[in-house]
Protein backbone atom coordinates (compact mmCIF):
# COMPACT_ATOMS: atom_id res chain seq x y z
CA UNK A 1 0.00 0.00 0.00
CA UNK A 2 1.39 3.35 -0.97
CA UNK A 3 1.80 6.20 1.47
CA UNK A 4 -1.01 8.11 -0.18
CA UNK A 5 -3.50 5.26 0.01
CA UNK A 6 -2.58 4.72 3.72
CA UNK A 7 -3.37 8.37 4.39
CA UNK A 8 -6.76 8.07 2.66
CA UNK A 9 -7.58 4.89 4.61
CA UNK A 10 -6.68 6.61 7.88
CA UNK A 11 -8.93 9.57 7.09
CA UNK A 12 -11.88 7.29 6.23
CA UNK A 13 -11.36 5.36 9.45
CA UNK A 14 -11.23 8.55 11.53
CA UNK A 15 -14.50 9.77 10.08
CA UNK A 16 -16.26 6.42 10.50
CA UNK A 17 -15.09 5.97 14.07
CA UNK A 18 -16.02 9.45 15.36
CA UNK A 19 -18.20 8.65 18.40
CA UNK A 20 -21.89 9.66 18.66
CA UNK A 21 -21.94 11.66 15.44
CA UNK A 22 -24.29 10.99 12.54
CA UNK A 23 -23.67 12.79 9.27
CA UNK A 24 -26.15 13.20 6.42
CA UNK A 25 -26.17 15.99 3.86
CA UNK A 26 -24.47 18.39 6.22
CA UNK A 27 -27.03 17.88 9.03
CA UNK A 28 -25.52 16.94 12.35
CA UNK A 29 -26.90 15.13 15.35
CA UNK A 30 -24.82 14.89 18.46
CA UNK A 31 -25.93 12.79 21.36
CA UNK A 32 -24.87 13.28 24.94
CA UNK A 33 -26.23 12.35 28.31
CA UNK A 34 -27.40 15.15 30.56
CA UNK A 35 -29.37 15.77 33.71
CA UNK A 36 -33.04 16.64 33.19
CA UNK A 37 -35.67 17.63 35.74
CA UNK A 38 -39.08 15.97 35.49
CA UNK A 39 -42.00 17.59 37.24
CA UNK A 40 -45.36 15.97 37.78
CA UNK A 41 -48.26 18.40 38.17
CA UNK A 42 -51.60 17.21 39.44
CA UNK A 43 -54.64 18.48 41.27
CA UNK A 44 -55.27 17.53 44.87
CA UNK A 45 -57.84 14.99 43.69
CA UNK A 46 -55.01 13.17 41.91
CA UNK A 47 -56.07 14.20 38.41
CA UNK A 48 -53.08 15.18 36.28
CA UNK A 49 -52.79 18.79 35.12
CA UNK A 50 -52.85 17.80 31.46
CA UNK A 51 -51.77 20.40 28.90
CA UNK A 52 -51.12 22.97 31.61
CA UNK A 53 -48.80 25.86 30.84
CA UNK A 54 -45.34 25.80 32.37
CA UNK A 55 -43.14 28.85 32.91
CA UNK A 56 -39.53 28.49 34.10
CA UNK A 57 -37.47 31.18 35.84
CA UNK A 58 -33.68 30.87 36.17
CA UNK A 59 -31.85 31.68 39.43
CA UNK A 60 -30.04 34.73 38.05
CA UNK A 61 -33.22 36.56 36.99
CA UNK A 62 -36.41 35.36 38.67
CA UNK A 63 -38.44 38.06 36.92
CA UNK A 64 -37.54 36.97 33.38
CA UNK A 65 -39.04 33.88 31.76
CA UNK A 66 -36.21 31.43 30.96
CA UNK A 67 -38.36 28.85 29.23
CA UNK A 68 -41.91 27.64 28.85
CA UNK A 69 -43.95 24.75 27.55
CA UNK A 70 -46.92 22.46 28.19
CA UNK A 71 -47.31 19.44 30.41
CA UNK A 72 -48.19 16.15 28.74
CA UNK A 73 -51.48 14.31 29.27
CA UNK A 74 -50.11 12.81 32.49
CA UNK A 75 -49.20 16.25 33.79
CA UNK A 76 -45.46 15.64 33.33
CA UNK A 77 -42.97 18.20 32.14
CA UNK A 78 -39.24 17.70 31.52
CA UNK A 79 -36.67 20.44 31.26
CA UNK A 80 -32.91 20.64 31.24
CA UNK A 81 -31.57 23.55 33.25
CA UNK A 82 -28.26 25.02 32.15
CA UNK A 83 -25.23 25.10 34.41
CA UNK A 84 -26.53 27.89 36.66
CA UNK A 85 -26.40 27.03 40.35
CA UNK A 86 -29.19 28.22 42.61
CA UNK A 87 -32.94 28.03 42.84
CA UNK A 88 -34.89 27.47 39.65
CA UNK A 89 -38.60 28.25 39.85
CA UNK A 90 -41.20 26.47 37.76
CA UNK A 91 -44.79 27.63 37.62
CA UNK A 92 -47.51 25.31 36.34
CA UNK A 93 -50.90 26.90 35.79
CA UNK A 94 -54.23 26.19 34.18
CA UNK A 95 -57.45 28.22 34.38
CA UNK A 96 -56.21 30.31 37.30
CA UNK A 97 -55.14 27.26 39.27
CA UNK A 98 -51.64 25.94 39.64
CA UNK A 99 -48.56 25.87 41.78
CA UNK A 100 -44.96 26.92 41.93
CA UNK A 101 -42.15 24.41 42.46
CA UNK A 102 -38.51 25.19 43.13
CA UNK A 103 -35.49 23.15 42.07
CA UNK A 104 -32.25 23.74 43.94
CA UNK A 105 -29.33 23.15 41.60
CA UNK A 106 -26.06 22.75 43.46
CA UNK A 107 -22.93 20.68 43.39
CA UNK A 108 -24.92 17.73 44.70
CA UNK A 109 -27.93 16.17 42.98
CA UNK A 110 -30.75 18.67 42.25
CA UNK A 111 -33.30 18.94 44.99
CA UNK A 112 -36.90 19.45 43.93
CA UNK A 113 -38.89 21.39 46.44
CA UNK A 114 -42.51 20.70 45.70
CA UNK A 115 -45.16 23.32 46.16
CA UNK A 116 -46.81 23.55 49.54
CA UNK A 117 -49.96 21.50 49.76
CA UNK A 118 -52.37 20.30 52.34
CA UNK A 119 -52.73 16.83 53.78
CA UNK A 120 -53.24 14.17 51.16
CA UNK A 121 -55.07 11.55 53.15
CA UNK A 122 -58.57 11.63 54.49
CA UNK A 123 -57.66 10.77 58.07
CA UNK A 124 -55.61 13.95 58.41
CA UNK A 125 -58.38 15.97 56.79
CA UNK A 126 -61.04 14.47 59.05
CA UNK A 127 -58.95 15.31 62.15
CA UNK A 128 -58.52 18.90 60.98
CA UNK A 129 -62.23 19.29 60.25
CA UNK A 130 -63.04 17.79 63.67
CA UNK A 131 -60.67 20.23 65.38
CA UNK A 132 -62.18 23.22 63.63
CA UNK A 133 -65.70 21.93 64.39
CA UNK A 134 -64.70 21.57 68.03
CA UNK A 135 -63.42 25.14 68.07
CA UNK A 136 -66.62 26.42 66.44
CA UNK A 137 -68.79 24.44 68.85
CA UNK A 138 -66.83 25.87 71.76
CA UNK A 139 -67.28 29.39 70.40
CA UNK A 140 -70.99 28.79 69.87
CA UNK A 141 -71.49 27.43 73.40
CA UNK A 142 -69.42 30.24 74.90
CA UNK A 143 -71.46 32.86 73.06
CA UNK A 144 -74.74 31.18 74.00
CA UNK A 145 -73.63 30.89 77.66
CA UNK A 146 -72.64 34.56 77.81
CA UNK A 147 -75.97 35.54 76.36
CA UNK A 148 -77.90 33.43 78.87
CA UNK A 149 -75.93 34.92 81.77
CA UNK A 150 -76.56 38.44 80.45
CA UNK A 151 -80.30 37.68 80.15
CA UNK A 152 -80.44 36.23 83.69
CA UNK A 153 -78.67 39.21 85.27
CA UNK A 154 -80.88 41.81 83.56
Amino acid sequence: MTRCSRLVAACVLAVLCAPHVALSHAALIEAETTQAIRLHAFYETGEPMAQAQVIIFAPDNPALVWGQGLTDLQGRFDFIPDAQMGRWSVQVRQAGHGAMAHVEMGTMDPVVITSAGGPQNWTQRAIMIALVAWGALGTALWAAGNRNRADASS
Partner: peptide, 22 residues
Amino acid sequence: PRGELPRAAMLTTVFFAASALS
Protein backbone atom coordinates in the same frame (compact mmCIF):
# COMPACT_ATOMS: atom_id res chain seq x y z
CA PRO B 1 -74.82 41.03 67.44
CA ARG B 2 -73.74 38.47 70.06
CA GLY B 3 -76.84 36.43 69.42
CA GLU B 4 -75.60 35.68 65.89
CA LEU B 5 -72.19 34.42 67.04
CA PRO B 6 -73.13 30.74 67.58
CA ARG B 7 -74.67 30.50 64.12
CA ALA B 8 -71.65 32.23 62.56
CA ALA B 9 -69.22 29.91 64.37
CA MET B 10 -71.02 26.76 63.25
CA LEU B 11 -71.46 27.89 59.65
CA THR B 12 -67.77 28.82 59.47
CA THR B 13 -67.02 25.15 60.12
CA VAL B 14 -69.50 24.04 57.48
CA PHE B 15 -67.93 26.42 54.96
CA PHE B 16 -64.41 25.26 55.90
CA ALA B 17 -65.26 21.56 55.68
CA ALA B 18 -67.19 21.91 52.41
CA SER B 19 -64.00 22.73 50.52
CA ALA B 20 -62.65 19.27 51.39
CA LEU B 21 -65.44 17.63 49.41
CA SER B 22 -64.96 17.40 45.68
